[in-house]
Simulated assay, not measured.
Amino acid sequence: MSALAEAVVDLGAIADNVRTVAAVTDTALMAVVKADGFGHGAVPVARAALDAGARWLGVTSAAEALALRGAGITAPTLSWLHRPDDDFAALISAGVDVGVSTTTHLHAIVDAAHQVGVPATVQLKVDTGLSRNGASGDDWPDLVAWARKYEVEGGVQVRGVWSHLADADTPGSPGLPHQVATFEEALRVARHAGLSPDLVHLANSAAALSAPRTRFDLCRIGLALYGVDPFGADGPGEFGLRPAMTLRTTVINVKRVPAGTGVSYGPEYVTARPTTLALLPLGYADGLPRATEGRAEVWLGGRRLPIVGRVAMDQCVVDAGAAPVAIGDPVVVFGPSTGDGRAGRHGIATTGDPAAPTVTEWARWAGTNPHEILTGVGARVGRDHLHERAGNS
Rank of each mutant, 00 (worst) to 15 (best):
D16N: 12
D16T: 10
A28M: 08
A28N: 06
K34S: 01
H40A: 11
R47L: 06
L57P: 07
G58P: 04
G58H: 04
A62D: 12
L68M: 09
A71W: 03
G72N: 06
A75S: 13
T77W: 11
D87T: 11
F88T: 05
G95T: 04
G99Q: 05
A108E: 14
V110L: 01
D111I: 07
D111M: 09
H114E: 14
Q115N: 10
Q115Y: 03
G117C: 06
A120H: 10
A120M: 10
Q123E: 07
V126E: 02
G129F: 00
R132C: 11
G134T: 00
A135Y: 01
D138Q: 12
A145S: 13
E151W: 01
E151P: 03
R159E: 04
R159D: 03
V161M: 12
V161A: 02
H164M: 13
T170Q: 14
P177G: 13
G194Y: 02
S196V: 14
V200A: 10
L202T: 11
A207D: 10
A207Y: 05
L209I: 05
L209H: 04
T214R: 07
L218K: 05
G222W: 00
L225W: 01
L225S: 01
F231T: 05
G232A: 10
G232S: 09
G235V: 09
G237W: 03
G240F: 07
R242T: 07
M245F: 03
T250A: 12
T250Q: 13
T261I: 11
V263P: 10
T271L: 09
A278T: 02
A291I: 02
E297N: 11
G302Y: 05
I307L: 15
Q315K: 13
V318Y: 04
D319C: 09
P324T: 12
I327R: 15
S337H: 04
G341M: 06
G341C: 06
T350P: 00
G352E: 10
V359F: 02
T360Y: 03
W362K: 04
A363I: 07
L374H: 05
G376M: 10
A379S: 14
R380M: 00
E388C: 06
G391E: 12
N392C: 09
N392P: 11
